[in-house]
Write a protein that binds this DNA or RNA. Sequence first.
DNA 1: CCTGCAAACCGTACACCATACGAAGAATGT
DNA 2: ACATTCTTCGTATGGTGTACGGTTTGCAGG
Lengths: 262, 262
Amino acid sequence: MSTESTGRGEPDRTLRLLWRERLGEPLGSRGPKQRSSVDEVVEAAIQIADEEGIDALSMRRIADRLGLKPMSVYTYVPGKAELIDLMVDHVAGEVVLPALDGSLRDRLTEIARLQWEEYLRHPWLLSIDTSRPPLGPHVSDRWEWCLGAIDGLGLSDVDMDRVITLLLGFVGGPARAYLDAERLHRSSAESDVEWWERNAPLLEQIMDPSRYPISGRVGQAAGEAYEAPADPLGAFTFGLARVIDGIERYVTSTAASAGGHA
Amino acid sequence: MSTESTGRGEPDRTLRLLWRERLGEPLGSRGPKQRSSVDEVVEAAIQIADEEGIDALSMRRIADRLGLKPMSVYTYVPGKAELIDLMVDHVAGEVVLPALDGSLRDRLTEIARLQWEEYLRHPWLLSIDTSRPPLGPHVSDRWEWCLGAIDGLGLSDVDMDRVITLLLGFVGGPARAYLDAERLHRSSAESDVEWWERNAPLLEQIMDPSRYPISGRVGQAAGEAYEAPADPLGAFTFGLARVIDGIERYVTSTAASAGGHA
DNA sequence: CCTGCAAACCGTACACCATACGAAGAATGT
DNA sequence: ACATTCTTCGTATGGTGTACGGTTTGCAGG
């Protein structure tokens, strides 16, 4: 398995697990007491992924952390695919969703900021293909909360879905860049300057300015402005402003044309 | 290794390989003739990833396809990490970049469309963490081409970088959704309707409308509008329009304030 | 021509991974 | 007391990337 993704287990089994207690499972209580719990498994998995990245997450590591043997983990969770779903839903429930008031811009900014911080708290979320999000309680609550921020503006239901998808989808880009820069800074013994000095000759030979007039200029300008190879936080702020501008304009024009009809 | 990503090999070694022939390596020609070539390795890898997904890509599979034994692949490529870089750069060189003329909107649309189609051609690109893109010739050419579309509009160099990053970053979202829907349609024996009928009882129990008034409404509306659980192509068109609106507005306002000074 | 030696090739091995299968043991209901 | 049922876990299968060291190949220098 190379790429982790949500929604790979059997759907109903996963659903049942996501909503566990809330669906009163019969849960015959024969046999030895469980030494652990689904929540402990999920939390251990999240800890491992947080600390050492999604690559380090394995059923064996989880078992170690809980004092179990590898195969016992399968008593709590049907497999790794389902576990990923549970992890995603679990982290979605970590924060209390603040009441959204203020302007549309404020509300959309708040949503993006929350998502941004979630990515920083759990970088492995960005390494997971969540195209089919797990329909767990916390993910669902989050979705409801997001949609609430743009309800009653005159957008069609379908447009509402698309606006939120656009906004949340945007955040991933700069968040990835931010984390990448952070990782680089932490891990490399070499400073940025040293790396540059070592690789400059090769890069100069390659990046011949007649072939790359614009990239050359832009790259240099960016490097000087940031005093780093990239400025992801700036990219987040900048991109968010553009995306919200686009959304605002759409809302305004939609409201205007709907107003004409009403 | 669970998540594939670019930029994980030693940088200079990878750079040298990316630009291979163009940097005249000495290449002592002792020993047996090479039975294959870096290009063949990269192309075989891309074929496997195209046909069976990135998870099916392994050094052993590549060797099989080239009639080599596994370890011989390492004579062409230092490791899998570097291979990923080579694959990404290779696919970036598959298309001739069309001349960009027309309005700003047309040019940005063309860029997004090209990226969209590249994702459809090589879905595995979306499963790869390209936060640090490989600085190969084709990726660099592409970047130069993109920047060219917004050069001379009065944007600062840094803003140019951010605009293109925003635009390209956006495409990934709907492309992922599109491919996911396609995969689902192809792979599942069950029709959408059958799936719904089987899971409806559980979903109704879970998705209690008093807890999810808006999502419930929106989800139902979307389902009816698309006659499918999602409409990624529509999301692409919609999102692209909003993003470009936001960019256009920024360009206009920047030009206006710069014009005031000039 | 021959030999030295660098390079390509590959056999083997290691340390992982997810998980299928089935045995062993524990706690409960009867 | 006993049967049932569930947890736990030992073992095994078939995969992964790649380190290491040996074998083969064929060009370059003597």
